[in-house]
Design a protein around this nucleic acid. Structure first.
Length: 326
DNA sequence: ATGGTTTTTACTGCGTC
DNA sequence: GACGCGGTAAAAACCAT
């Protein structure tokens, strides 16, 4: 102890061996005692690694991965072992599901008693129920993959994906899927969750990354919103601004102006009935004019997927309202 | 189904670079 | 002549009834 000045005393170190001291290696398996240099031994009874010389506990709560039983011959081993065939990834359930034959015969080919037959029938019923649960799992897996793919294509953050998968799961649980495509419901769920997270994407943006066309998407979207009674408030134009602005490489100042314009337009009652995307696009364009950030109508229309005509109509109104309120 | 509103499509003319 | 912009009319889409 005298030759190791940085070390604290032994008790202290054994008590909190998970608090790492700087420069000390803890995650490595030691075979000599760091304290006295003596040999260490595994104490399987207590799950500890202990120094033979000084008794320092080097590692606690180690896990014994072996069987907890003992067997003295192979027959006993077979009897006591509780593990079965290796699993395979070739099957969706790793080969762990049960198959029940349809014939009312036992393993020796004998017919079953009527009592046994009824029992087997019940077992088949339940097995089928579990199997359909499995198919739901597969369905979910595929859908979640799709959601993830589309979300990253659209640059939607993790929390949006999570909400989307929750929505999808609910749709699945409530048997909303039959008659609808997995892809369609997944897209609708993502669209809904993006709006709920106030980070909306327009329907055409969705349909660009999705394999379903816009009509199916809107149909499915309406359907699941109604059936799951999701509360989705209409998107605010402001929510589109950051994305448009950054897609067009405009300045923050322009974004700020655009916000202002929308705010004034809102006061003037220009927002009701108009498409929020169109408003946002027009505001961006108008703000670009005001701040000398050069954007053309078609550029804005492109990133917002809105027609130039709409931008023209909106931005005139917006500027009108702005000069009045200013 | 229908009618009103909004958006899109398509086309045209004007000014500028 | 290409481009950005403004305007218009008709078609299409959307929405509430």
């Amino acid at each position: 102890m005298s030759e190791s000045p940085v070390r604290t005393n032994t008790k202290e170190r054994t008590q909190n061996n998970e608090t790492t001291e700087v420069g000390e290696k803890t995650d490595e398996q030691l075979d000599v005692c760091p304290e006295c240099g003596g040999s260490v031994a595994m104490d399987a009874e207590h799950g500890e690694t202990v120094c033979n010389d000084c008794g320092l506990v080097i590692e606690e709560d180690s896990i014994d991965r072996g069987p907890e039983w003992r067997a003295f011959d192979s027959a006993e081993r077979d009897r006591k072992s509780r593990v079965g065939a290796p699993t395979t990834n070739m099957m969706h359930d790793k080969g762990l599901s049960t198959n029940i034959g349809w014939q009312n015969k036992d393993a020796y080919g004998r017919s079953l008693s009527s009592e046994q037959r009824q029992k087997m029938q019940r077992l088949r019923t339940w097995n089928e129920r579990f199997r359909t649960r499995d198919s739901k799992e597969r369905n979910l897996k595929q859908a979640l993959g799709e959601i993830d793919r589309m979300a990253s294509a659209l640059g939607l953050p993790q929390n949006v994906r999570e909400t989307a998968s929750v929505i999808y799961r609910r749709a699945l649980d409530e048997d909303l899927l039959p008659g609808r495509s997995i892809e369609g419901v997944a897209t609708a769920a993502l669209y809904a969750s993006a709006r709920m997270a106030r980070n909306p994407r327009s329907l055409d943006e969705m349909s660009v990354v999705s394999r379903v066309d816009e009509m199916e998407l809107t149909r499915t979207y309406r359907y699941i919103v109604r059936e799951l009674s999701l509360e989705i408030q209409p998107a605010d134009p402001e929510q589109y601004l950051p994305r448009f602005v950054s897609d067009l490489d405009l300045t923050d100042e322009t974004e700020r102006r655009a916000r202002e314009l929308i705010e004034r337009a809102r006061r003037a009652g220009l927002l009701s009935g108009k498409s929020p995307v169109g408003l946002a696009a027009a505001a961006v364009y108008a703000a670009g004019l005001l701040t000398n950030d050069t954007v053309t109508q078609s550029q804005v229309g492109d990133v917002a997927s809105i027609s130039e005509v709409t931008i023209r109509n909106r931005y005139k109104e917006i500027l009108e309202a702005d000069t009045v309120t200013a």
